[in-house]
Amino acid sequence: MERQEDPPAPLDMARFRPNLVIDGAPPYAEDDWREIRIGPLAFRVSERCDRCAVPTYDPVTLEKGKEPLRTLARHRRWDGRTWFGIRLIPRGRGELRLGDPVTVLA
């Protein structure tokens, strides 16, 4: 860490306001995905998702901090943006359920 700082405390996933969270993949594995299946539905990856400042606010206390953007920017900053996650386009209609298996198709 810079200036002998302690590492930041883990943040709750709610801080990121995700639509889907995929458990069990290595960090940033989604960077190489082009198409995935979640349960019965196929999705194509449309683009990477840049992060706005919203995750710097605690959703309960509304306190603003530097994390997680400061840490993300150390590892995932290019084109003047900080990147985190991907945007998916469904290839059909259906319903996702908690615990659906995830398969990388391409």
Results as ranks from 00 to 15, higher is better:
M1E: 13
E2D: 15
Q4H: 12
Q4A: 14
Q4I: 13
E5F: 07
E5C: 07
D6Q: 14
D6P: 05
D6R: 12
D6I: 09
D6L: 11
P7C: 00
A9D: 10
A9N: 06
A9L: 11
A9P: 12
A9E: 14
A9I: 06
A9R: 09
A9H: 06
P10M: 00
P10R: 00
D12P: 13
R15K: 08
R15H: 05
F16H: 05
L20P: 00
L20A: 03
G24Y: 01
G24Q: 03
P26L: 13
P27H: 04
A29M: 04
A29T: 06
D31I: 02
D32G: 15
D32R: 08
W33A: 01
R34H: 10
R34V: 00
E35S: 13
I36V: 15
I36F: 08
I36A: 07
I38E: 04
G39Y: 04
P40S: 15
R44Y: 02
S46D: 11
E47N: 07
E47F: 02
R48D: 07
C49L: 13
D50W: 15
R51W: 01
R51T: 02
C52R: 05
V54E: 12
V54Q: 12
P55W: 01
T56K: 07
Y57V: 14
Y57S: 09
V60Q: 11
V60E: 12
V60M: 06
T61H: 06
T61W: 09
T61N: 04
L62D: 08
E63A: 15
E63I: 12
E63H: 09
G65Y: 04
K66Y: 10
K66E: 15
K66T: 14
E67M: 07
E67W: 04
P68R: 10
P68H: 03
R70S: 08
T71Q: 11
T71I: 07
A73H: 10
R76Y: 14
R77V: 04
W78Q: 11
G80W: 07
G80I: 07
R81A: 15
R81P: 06
T82I: 15
T82K: 01
W83N: 07
F84Y: 07
F84W: 12
F84V: 05
F84H: 12
G85Y: 03
G85R: 02
G85T: 05
I86Q: 06
I86Y: 03
R87A: 11
L88P: 01
I89N: 06
P90K: 10
R91I: 11
R91M: 15
G92Q: 04
R93M: 11
R93V: 14
R93F: 10
G94R: 09
G94N: 05
L98S: 09
G99F: 05
G99L: 11
D100T: 01
P101A: 11
P101V: 05
